[in-house]
């Protein structure tokens, strides 16, 4: 099956899952994860209408972004979805539309400095460790405190939450983790009204995540194949 047919299929599955949660396909943003994907393939995806790409490494993101910008006329945006290191923040502010994985005060401070210096507000999601065994993410109990600290940073705009559940063969097993993230957002959104987005669900479990309220899904191998 070629790339275009895969994209059609994934979009249809997103649409069906959105309908099952009483929403429309447009309510769910598809981030195509391009880790290990060559620029010529990304360009082809962009020409077919994919317009949001996610990368795990800051420098690789910048390089691919520059190559794609020159190659295609379509407007595309880039999201950073990998482990966020403070010393890589400088590559991201001003280049990416959204950072999905903020989970330290020091990285937040650096984003704030770089964003204010550039005269912008950097949209971020806070990564939450709903699974208990993930390497990154803020513990759910500590989320309110963390959000309070972020609220003081003028250069940082927290627009939602992200989580990465443990891997399961059966995507149904991930459902409680997605539901937990949605509950967290619902409980905290009275206090933090900008907290809207839920970035959750990947190639193996995005339909379950959408049923549980995902507004952003991060899909790589289901579109581009298992490259590595």
């Amino acid at each position: 099956m070629n790339l275009e047919s895969r994209i059609d299929e994934i979009r249809a599955r997103i649409g069906s899952a959105a309908a099952r949660s009483g929403r429309r396909a447009e309510d769910v943003k598809l981030v195509a994860v391009t880790k290990q994907v060559e620029p010529d393939v990304i360009a082809r995806a962009a020409q077919y209408g994919l317009c949001v790409f996610g990368e795990n490494y800051a420098q690789e993101l910048r390089l691919k972004q520059e190559i794609i910008n020159r190659a295609v006329s379509e407007n595309v945006e880039w999201h950073f979805i990998g482990r966020l290191q403070r010393n890589k923040v400088k590559y991201l502010v001003g280049s990416v539309a959204l950072i999905h994985s903020l989970d330290t005060v020091s990285a937040a401070g650096e984003i704030d400095r770089k964003a204010r210096a550039a005269g912008v507000k950097m949209p971020v999601l806070v990564e939450v460790n709903t699974g208990g065994e993930s390497k990154g993410g803020i513990e759910p109990d500590a989320l309110d405190d963390f959000l309070l600290k972020l609220a003081e940073l003028q250069g940082v705009e927290v627009s939602g939450l992200m989580t990465m559940p443990p891997y399961f063969d059966d995507p149904e097993d991930a459902r409680p983790y997605f539901a937990a993230l949605r509950d967290l957002r619902d409980r905290l959104s009275a206090k933090y009204p900008d907290l809207k987005e839920l970035s959750m669900g990947m190639s193996g479990d995005f339909e379950v995540a959408i049923e549980e309220g995902a507004t952003i899904v991060r899909i790589g191998s289901a579109i581009f194949g298992n490259r590595a």
Binding site: E38, I67, A71
Partner: peptide
């Protein structure tokens, strides 16, 4: 290289990469 297939470069920056 690393199971990634390198095609023809799209431009000079891609060739550098």
């Amino acid at each position: 290289v690393d199971d990634i297939v390198l095609g023809k470069p799209m431009d000079e920056l891609d060739a550098t990469r």
